[in-house]
Amino acid sequence: GDMPWVVKAEEKMKFDSIFESLGPVGGMLTGDRVKPVLLNSKLPVDILGRVWELSDLDRDGMLDRDEFSVAMYLVYRALEGEPVPMSLPPPLVPPSKR
């Protein structure tokens, strides 16, 4: 659809720079690379597990830059006190994955 992605351009640039700083291989970050970053948020591990479930859209155990942005978006919102949804709302699905 043509629904705007909830991750705005400015926020996407920030998430992309974090993504690049973690040393993606072939445009992907493995769970081992992403896990310590999410743990840094100090959010409960069960919440972070759900963030991963919602972000790894193709369930390959790795995040590309759009999936990583979904993960970071959910973590930042959770830190602001918003609950992490049980399933990914359509506006949060990256346009490249629809």
Binding site: G31, V34, K35, L48, G49, W52, D56, R59, D60, G61
Partner: peptide, 13 residues
């Protein structure tokens, strides 16, 4: 959801 006997793709599980 995960392959039987296979490991999870979720690093937090």
């Amino acid at each position: 959801q995960y392959p039987a006997g296979g490991s999870s793709t979720n690093p937090f599980l």
